[in-house]
Amino acid sequence: MEFAVSQILSGISLGGQYALIAIGYTMVYGILRLINFAHGDVFMIAGIMMIYMATTLPLYIAIPAMIICTVLLGFLIERAAYKPLRAAPRMSVMISAIGVSYLLQNLALYITGGQPKTYPRIPWISDTVTIFGARTYVVTLVTPFLVIALVVALTLLINHTKIGIAMRAVSKDFETSQLMGVKINTVISVTFIIGSFLAAVGSVLYFTNYPTVVPMSGAMPGLKAFVAAVFGGIGSIPGAVIGAFIIGICETLIKGTDYAIFSDAFTFALLIVILVAKPTGIFGEKTTDKV
C-alpha cells in the first residue's frame, strides 16, 4: 500500500512537471509549427539562474527575478534566432532551434564548469508530509493543482481575451491573420513569454523534487515533455497536460517493476506507436484536405 501510494504520488508529480514544459512545446507548435528544441534548455537555465540568484538574494526576490529573466530569455531567443527566419523554410527554423539548445547547454557547462549544482531549499514546498504512510515533499501534492489552475487560466486567456483570439487566428492561418491586421510578431512573442513562464514555474517544482542541476538537466525532461505533447496531440493544451500525466505515471510505475531499465525505452516506444497508429495524438486537430 505504502509502496503503491508512493509510486503513484511520484508519477503524478513528475507528470505535472512534464506538463508545464509540454505546454510550452505545444503552444509554440500550434502557432509557429515549430518544435522549439531549446525549450528544455530554457527550463535548465531557469534552474541554474535560481541557484546563482538564491546565493545573494532572499528567496522572495530571487523567485520572481528568476521568472522574469527566464521570460526575457525566451523572448530574446525568439527575436534573435527564430524571427529572422520567419520567411525561411520550416526546416531552417528547426535547425536554428537545435543550435540554440546546444548553445544554452554549453553556456551552462561553461558557467558551472560542469559541476553539479544544488538547488536551494524553498520553504514550505520542500517540507515533507506523510500520506497513507508514504513520505513525500509538499511540492508533490501542490504540483497537480498548480498545473490545473495554470491550464484553466491559460484556456480562459486563449478563449476570452483579445490576444487569445489573435493567437487562435495565427494558429489557423499565418498569412491571412496578418492580412487581417493581427500583429503576428506580438502574438508570437506572447506565446514564447507564456511558454517560458511555465518552464520557469516548472523548474522550481521539478528541481525542488530533484535538487541537482547539471547542464544536461533539461535534455531528458524536455524530450519527455515533447513526447507528451505529441502523445496528447501537438497543438492542444489539454492534450499536452493529459499526455504528460500519462507519461509521468507510466514511467514511475515501470521503474517500480523488474523492467526498470526499460522505462525510457517505453516512453519513446510510445511515441513511435502513437505516431504510427494516431499521428495527430489523442486530442489532435483533424486535418481537413482542402480541394
Binding site: 505504502e2 509502496f3 508512493s6 509510486q7 511520484s10 513528475l14 513525500t136 521539478y206 523534487n209 530533484y210 541537482t212 544536461m216 538537466s217 535534455a219 531528458m220 525532461p221 514511467e251 514511475t252 521503474k255 517500480g256 526498470a260 531499465i261 522505462s263 525510457d264
Partner: peptide, 20 residues
C-alpha cells in the same frame, strides 16, 4: 540490482522499491 538511464533524476521509485 537495478540500473537507471543516463540523466535520470527521479530516484524515488528505486528508493521505494528498496524500502518495500
Amino acid at each position: 540490482s537495478d540500473s537507471f538511464p543516463t540523466n535520470n533524476s527521479d530516484f524515488t521509485t528505486y528508493i521505494n522499491k528498496a524500502k518495500s
